[in-house]
């Protein structure tokens, strides 16, 4: 085993201090070291988008970063997006428009969409489809997801 590194990483507003092996992926750090299992791990090579988190506000694949690289940075996972009785408007919209079936891909869609809808408050369908092209869903065929994004945009504009 290689040397351990001390890291201090802010996740969902809470500062976590841990020791990590350099090879520990950020996705596994979130799930195994912090118990934040809302971030899902699908393909582990940057294709499926299930592990998308916000890193200093930008959507990134947490399976394509090492936890040691997040030292001193801020991470937002789906757990930090809203609470069960106080959902984020994007979460509300996915619920109301049936934007999910099994839910495996959903955390990645939600985190991808936060900065997208903040920067594009009234996106076209084409822009929406482009924005979610890095997230794979094997249940819905995307129709309901696109509807959910449109509804989310409406809610966020209101």
């Amino acid at each position: 085993m290689s040397d351990l590194f001390d890291v201090a990483i802010t996740v969902n507003g809470i500062l976590y201090e841990r020791e990590v092996e350099p090879r520990l992926l950020l996705s596994d750090f979130l799930r195994h070291d912090l118990g934040l299992t809302g971030t899902h791990v699908g393909c582990e090579h940057g294709v499926c988008g299930a592990c998308t988190i916000l890193f200093d506000g930008d959507p990134v694949r947490s399976c394509l970063m090492f936890a040691v690289q997040a030292q001193g940075h801020e991470v937002l996972t789906v757990e930090g997006l809203g609470a069960i009785d106080d959902l984020h408007p994007i979460q509300e919209a996915f619920w109301e428009a049936h934007g999910l079936q099994c839910g495996f891909c959903t955390p990645g869609f939600l985190t991808t969409l936060v900065p997208f809808l903040e920067e594009n408050p009234d996106p076209s369908e084409e822009e929406i489809r482009d924005a979610i092209s890095g997230n794979l869903c094997r249940c819905t065929g995307y129709k309901h997801i696109v509807d959910a994004v449109k509804l989310a945009a409406e809610k966020m504009r209101a």
Binding site: G46, G49, F55, P59, L64, M65, T112, F116
Partner: peptide, 9 residues
């Protein structure tokens, strides 16, 4: 180039 999640990194 790739997707937004790749271009951010």
């Amino acid at each position: 180039i790739a997707t937004s999640q790749i271009r951010s990194r």
